[in-house]
Simulated scan of single mutants.
Amino acid sequence: MGGKLPATPLGNLNNHIMKKKVFIFILLFSVKSLIAQGILTVTTNKTNYAYGDSIVVRVTITNNTDTSFTLIGSSTCFMRIKFNDIRLSPMCTLDQREFFFSAGMSRTWIWYLYPKDHGIPNKEGVQKIVGSCGNLSDSVYINAPKYRGGVIAVGLKESISASVYQSLRDSMNATLIYSSLGPKVYEYWRVVNHSIDSLVEKYSQDYRLDWIIVKRTLEFNKHIVTSIKSNPIIPSNFSLSQNYPNPFNPKTRINFEVPQKTQIDLTIYDVKGSIVLNLLKGEYLPGQYSVDFDGSSLSSGVYYYQLKSFTGYLTKKMLLLK
Rank of each mutant, 00 (worst) to 15 (best):
G3A: 08
A7H: 00
N12T: 11
L13T: 13
L13S: 07
H16M: 06
M18E: 12
K20A: 10
F23H: 01
F23L: 09
I24M: 07
S30A: 12
L34H: 11
K46R: 15
A50R: 15
S54L: 04
S54D: 15
N63Y: 07
N64C: 10
T65H: 01
D66P: 00
F69P: 05
F69G: 03
T70V: 15
I72H: 07
G73Q: 08
G73A: 09
M79N: 09
F83D: 08
F83A: 11
D85S: 02
L88E: 06
S89Y: 14
P90W: 04
P90S: 05
T93W: 07
L94D: 15
R97W: 09
F100S: 13
R107V: 06
W111E: 08
H118D: 13
G119C: 10
P121Q: 04
E124H: 09
V126Q: 14
I129C: 08
G131F: 06
L136A: 03
V140N: 06
P145I: 05
G149V: 07
G150P: 07
V151M: 10
V151P: 02
V154W: 03
V154D: 00
E158W: 10
S163A: 12
V164P: 01
Q166P: 00
S167W: 02
R169S: 04
D170S: 14
S171R: 13
S171Y: 04
A174H: 07
Y178K: 12
S179F: 01
S179N: 11
S180H: 02
L181I: 07
G182A: 07
P183H: 07
E187C: 14
R190A: 10
V192W: 02
D197T: 08
S198V: 08
L199Q: 04
E201P: 00
W211M: 00
I212Y: 02
V214L: 00
L218F: 05
F220K: 08
K222T: 13
T226G: 15
P232V: 10
Q242R: 05
P245R: 02
K251R: 13
N255A: 11
P259I: 08
Q260I: 13
Q260W: 12
I268T: 05
I268Y: 03
V271M: 04
K272V: 00
G273N: 01
S274K: 07
E283A: 04
Y289I: 05
F293T: 04
S299R: 11
S300I: 01
V302Y: 11
Y304V: 06
Q306D: 05
K308S: 06
K317N: 05
M318T: 11
K322T: 09
